[in-house]
């Protein structure tokens, strides 16, 4: 009963390859392990049944329980970014139009998104290329002016282009959170504030709740905002293979007079 050691070894290698790359095509796995596509599809079906990978059209990506077996040499920044991206992807609804800033965590969201008919709106070439390769949905590049590395410069063109999209969600990484407000991690382009203004819902991503930076410009809280955060002491909670990423909900104190609530999701 069960498989032979060569098959087991290959499946372990596939999990490791998917884990390291974030997304791998079936053809690439067949080449890497010198087996047929049929064999790889069978292996991926088995690994999905074990909740280690998620099969997407043409390949596979790590499943939600990924953090449990993350590569041991992965930097904390990368693993935290992946965890935040998974937390966002888990909350996406079919057919949503989602704006992504240029942070690492936001750029990984398309890698982990599995719901259908999404549209991602981005404003950097790097995020555009990653999203185009990893998801089946549409990806829109806002345009405007870019530097030599492909990062957007401040220009009204991107904000104007944003007005053509009916944003359901804006995914924005923040560097500082306080009762007074928050500051943006991604300082490229000026369309981030426009995206926050236009989106029905805003996810603010941070790996720490206690980081503060003096003199950082703060943006005000809105009732459309939710904070997703993870830190080292919370990674244990997100490792449960039940798939329940929401470990608890804390209600931040209401800002006087504004009449809104900010919910904080522990991932």
């Amino acid at each position: 009963m069960g498989v032979n050691s060569a098959t087991l070894k290959r499946r372990l290698g596939i999990v490791d390859a998917v884990r390291r790359a974030g997304f791998v095509r079936t053809e690439a796995l067949a080449d890497q392990f010198s087996v047929s596509m049929v064999t790889i599809r069978s292996d991926l079906a088995y690994l999905q049944s074990q909740n280690l990978v998620i099969r997407t059209n043409g390949g596979a990506q790590p499943a939600y329980g990924y953090a449990v077996n993350a590569p041991l040499d992965e930097s904390p920044t990368l693993s935290e970014a992946r965890a935040l991206a998974r937390a966002v992807a888990f909350r996406l609804q079919p057919g949503q139009c989602v704006f992504l800033d240029n942070s690492l965590a936001a750029s990984f969201v398309p890698v982990h998104a599995t719901v259908a008919n999404l549209r991602f709106v981005v404003n950097s070439f790097e995020t555009y290329h990653l999203a185009s390769r990893c998801c089946d949905g549409a990806v829109s590049l806002l345009g405007g002016e870019y530097d030599r590395l492909g990062y957007p410069l401040v220009s009204p063109a991107a904000s104007h282009a944003l007005s053509f999209y009916d944003l359901d969600l804006a995914v924005i990484s923040v560097s500082q959170i306080s009762k007074a407000g928050f500051s943006l991690l991604d300082q490229t382009g000026n369309c981030l504030e426009a995206a926050i203004e236009r989106a029905r819902q805003v996810f603010l991503l941070t790996d720490r709740l206690d980081r503060t930076e003096a003199d950082a410009p703060l943006l005000e809280w809105r009732n459309t905002m939710s904070v997703l955060h993870g830190g080292s002491h919370l990674m244990v909670r997100c490792c449960a293979r039940t798939g329940a990423l929401l470990a608890g909900i804390q209600q931040a104190p209401n800002k006087g007079g504004a009449g809104f609530c900010c919910f904080s999701f522990l991932i």
């Binding site: 329980g65 953090a67 077996n69 993350a70 693993s79 080292s232 244990v236 490792c239 449960a240």
Partner: peptide, 11 residues
């Protein structure tokens, strides 16, 4: 036991 894995504390 089925939840055993290489979470951050394990690493």
């Amino acid at each position: 036991c089925a939840q055993i894995g290489l979470h951050e504390a394990a690493r």
